[in-house]
Amino acid sequence: MNETAIIAENNISPPHPLKEFWKYFSENKGAVAGLWFIGIAILVAISANLIAPHSPFTQYRDAILQPPFWMDGGTTEFILGTDDVGRDILSRLIFGARLSLFVGVIVVTLSLAVGIFLGITSGYFGGFYETVVMRLMDIMLALPSLLLAMAIVAILGPSLQNAILAIAVVVLPHYVRLTRASVIGEKSKDYVTSSRVSGAGPFRMMFVVILPNCMAPLIVQATLGFSSAILDAAALGFLGMGAQPPTPEWGAMLANSLQFVQRAWWVVTFPGLAILLTVLAFNLAGDGLRDALDPKMKR
């Protein structure tokens, strides 16, 4: 087989998939900025013990509602000022980042895992099982998500764990539907059939053969889901149904300081800004991911 030997020599080597991905991702400046912000937020959250100037719980009774350092009456000891019981806002924000990211990670992992399982099984097996799962998801989608989350928390009792659980349940249908749709699309492709001819069982078919090809839209949805999880957690915290005081959670910080909006704007503004920026960063990065992973957008 002489001719085949020659064919083997001619190796066209396009760039590695990861390199190519980065090329497309880095074209989107907003996405890169978002990624940077997320990276910094993660670093801050991890090293909160080291970089926070104060404990988030210590109450400095002599410095209640002290403004940020650049204003009259502010000191560099409390860079972003203090709240109504004299706790350092910067330290609370730093520890809050830890909590918010933790909420995001847990919610996304939980809903992604369950969503992928339900979506892939219903897409692969179809039939009555699929109908039951999908109608259940439709019912969940028909209810306003925050209301549903509140109902769940009300039943389970207000705490951070229950809030996380409630949010995970509420966002579940998105993952199920997305997974099922891509599984159905992939299922009819030839490579799946050829694995079946090789005798692959249903478990292998679903999780080893099909799933990796459905991951691109799920990764994007998960990134965007991160931000909505943080937002929902903040909302539940704001309503007093999430993290309980004195836990430094951004939403709860916002809620507890509402009455000082007129007198001490910093108490409200900084947690609000933190939520805004984090959510924005995740959304931007998610958009960038979608563009980079979507083959239709590639030129």
Partner: peptide, 11 residues
């Protein structure tokens, strides 16, 4: 199969 692009698992 016929289509060499669809018959191999891209991942």
């Amino acid at each position: 199969f016929q289509d060499p692009y669809g018959s191999l698992n891209p991942r």
